[in-house]
Simulated assay, not measured.
Amino acid sequence: MSEKVAMSKKVDYKKDYKALYLPKTSPVIVDVPRMPFITVSGSGNPNGEEFSRVVEALYSLSYAVRMSYRGDEVPEGYYEYTVFPLEGVWDLVDRTKSAADKNNLKYTMMIRQPDFLTPSWFERFLEQTKKKKPNSHLDHVQFEHVEEGLCCQIMHVGSFDEEPKSFAAMEAFCKQNGYTRASKLHREIYLSDPRKTQQEKLKTVLRIQVEEREG
Results as ranks from 00 to 15, higher is better:
95 R>F: 08
95 R>W: 10
95 R>V: 11
96 T>P: 01
96 T>W: 02
97 K>W: 06
97 K>M: 12
97 K>V: 03
98 S>M: 07
98 S>V: 10
98 S>R: 08
99 A>D: 13
99 A>W: 15
100 A>T: 14
100 A>P: 02
100 A>C: 09
100 A>M: 12
101 D>W: 04
101 D>K: 07
101 D>L: 11
101 D>S: 06
101 D>I: 08
102 K>M: 13
102 K>I: 08
104 N>A: 03
105 L>V: 01
105 L>P: 00
106 K>W: 01
106 K>H: 08
106 K>F: 02
107 Y>V: 00
109 M>Y: 09
109 M>P: 00
110 M>G: 05
112 R>Q: 15
113 Q>I: 04
113 Q>C: 09
113 Q>D: 08
113 Q>A: 06
115 D>S: 11
115 D>L: 00
115 D>A: 06
116 F>T: 01
117 L>A: 03
117 L>F: 00
118 T>E: 11
118 T>R: 09
118 T>C: 07
119 P>D: 06
119 P>N: 13
119 P>G: 07
120 S>F: 07
120 S>T: 11
121 W>K: 15
121 W>V: 09
121 W>P: 07
122 F>H: 06
122 F>T: 04
122 F>D: 02
123 E>L: 10
123 E>V: 03
124 R>K: 15
124 R>M: 10
125 F>R: 15
125 F>P: 04
125 F>C: 08
125 F>A: 09
126 L>M: 15
126 L>Y: 05
126 L>N: 09
126 L>R: 15
128 Q>G: 14
128 Q>W: 11
129 T>D: 00
129 T>K: 02
129 T>W: 01
130 K>A: 03
130 K>W: 01
130 K>S: 04
130 K>M: 10
131 K>I: 12
131 K>Y: 06
131 K>T: 14
132 K>A: 14
133 K>E: 11
133 K>A: 09
133 K>T: 08
134 P>S: 05
134 P>I: 03
134 P>V: 03
135 N>P: 02
135 N>H: 05
136 S>H: 12
137 H>L: 12
137 H>Y: 15
137 H>G: 00
137 H>P: 02
138 L>F: 02
138 L>K: 02
138 L>N: 00
139 D>R: 06
139 D>H: 07
140 H>Q: 11
140 H>F: 10
142 Q>F: 06
142 Q>N: 13
143 F>K: 07
143 F>M: 07
144 E>S: 13
145 H>F: 14
145 H>I: 01
146 V>L: 14
146 V>N: 01
146 V>Q: 12
147 E>W: 05
147 E>Q: 13
148 E>R: 15
149 G>V: 07
149 G>Y: 05
150 L>H: 05
151 C>H: 02
151 C>P: 03
152 C>W: 00
153 Q>F: 02
153 Q>K: 08
154 I>N: 01
154 I>E: 04
155 M>D: 07
155 M>Q: 12
155 M>W: 08
156 H>K: 12
156 H>R: 09
156 H>V: 04
157 V>F: 06
158 G>E: 09
159 S>R: 14
159 S>Y: 04
160 F>E: 10
160 F>L: 12
160 F>N: 12
